[in-house]
Amino acid sequence: MIPRTERAVDELADIAQQGRLHVLETVASSGAGHIGGPMSAMDLLVALYFHQLRIDPERPDDPDRDRFILSKGHCAIGLYSVLAMRGYFPEEELTTFDHGDSRLQGHPDMKLTPGVDSSTGSLGQGLSAGSGMALAAKRRGLDFHTWVMLGDGELQEGMVWETIVCAPRYGLDNLTAIIDLNGLQQFGWDMADADRFDRSEPMGHIDLPAVLRGFGWEVLDIDGHDPQQIVTAYQEAESRRGSGGRPTAIIARTRKGNGVSYTQGTFTWHNGVPTEEQLDLARRELLGTQSTTTEVQA
């Protein structure tokens, strides 16, 4: 079995800040990409890849590795940043993001990118693929854990709920869903007076933990930006693997665009391209680097 590389919990926040800067700089370099979702998910991704997952960047196809699926595939640059920092490919390769001949396309492609276990991008499909992997592991006697990250807006997809119903029936206690509950989406589903749409995530208006428990899932509700809470939740999900027959859902309460003053808490940075001045401010806020810039228009 592949051993974990358990980086100290107090290091994870610093790694996540570097990952956020990679996101902003890469999107600026390529001229396109998503920012809000990758930055809300960064602490969760870093804790997975630097503390929890049993993986080996030198052997990305090892059959004993844990699996991870980024169901909200438009947040690919967040995953690529973490994969690069973890050693799956050089960090310099991030500059090729979204180029025609790049291994790092706008959505994850398992045939191109080392460390990507499932191609995603059409929202709602990742949990179904993950349940298939988890079921295959059960049937074949393989000892790996499958983790799937979903966006909260993605929970509007019916295919997600079909899997939520089915996974407990098949006893998939080796499946964990991580819900990046940042509370905002690019477009909403309801007309509102103040804007074209109500962009708040509709699952935020219901008791989501109670609903998931009602369907037979174990539920953990955490601060998705607190490394200790994240690591503890991952360890608890892992401890349930192989016993109880109930999959685990981790509801991670996050802020869209977290980490930078002009991106966090707003749907307008779901995607976008930062200017040089905005990048300069981000470097100061994320890494504490000095700058001669005194004023930035977000």
Results as ranks from 00 to 15, higher is better:
19 G>C: 12
190 D>G: 02
110 M>I: 09
242 G>T: 11
22 H>D: 15
22 H>Q: 13
286 L>A: 10
256 K>Y: 00
102 S>F: 03
4 R>L: 10
260 V>T: 06
35 I>A: 06
253 R>N: 13
26 T>A: 10
59 R>L: 11
235 Q>D: 15
143 D>N: 13
18 Q>Y: 09
143 D>G: 04
64 D>T: 14
89 F>G: 00
142 L>D: 10
283 R>W: 03
231 V>W: 00
127 L>G: 08
171 G>A: 03
67 R>D: 05
142 L>G: 06
99 H>A: 14
206 I>T: 15
40 S>T: 07
147 W>A: 05
218 E>Q: 13
131 S>R: 05
52 Q>H: 13
107 H>T: 07
170 Y>K: 04
55 I>N: 03
30 S>Q: 07
178 I>C: 07
15 I>M: 11
68 F>W: 01
193 D>E: 13
119 S>T: 15
205 H>K: 15
204 G>K: 08
295 E>N: 14
26 T>P: 04
252 A>E: 09
100 G>F: 14
82 V>P: 05
133 M>F: 14
198 D>R: 10
107 H>L: 07
120 T>S: 11
38 P>W: 01
76 A>G: 10
151 G>C: 08
204 G>L: 12
197 F>R: 05
21 L>S: 02
8 A>M: 08
66 D>P: 01
35 I>L: 14
199 R>N: 14
248 T>Y: 07
201 E>T: 15
81 S>N: 08
116 V>I: 15
188 G>T: 09
249 A>S: 11
148 V>G: 05
9 V>R: 14
19 G>F: 00
287 L>Q: 13
230 I>L: 05
11 E>A: 15
11 E>Y: 05
166 C>H: 13
208 L>R: 05
263 T>K: 01
70 L>K: 04
113 T>E: 04
126 G>A: 08
174 N>Q: 10
261 S>K: 10
226 D>C: 11
164 I>N: 00
16 A>F: 00
31 G>Y: 03
16 A>S: 15
67 R>N: 04
255 R>H: 10
182 N>K: 10
105 Q>H: 10
242 G>W: 09
227 P>W: 02
83 L>W: 01
10 D>Q: 13
229 Q>R: 12
159 M>W: 00
233 A>N: 04
143 D>I: 01
95 T>N: 07
26 T>G: 04
8 A>H: 13
226 D>V: 01
102 S>K: 06
30 S>K: 02
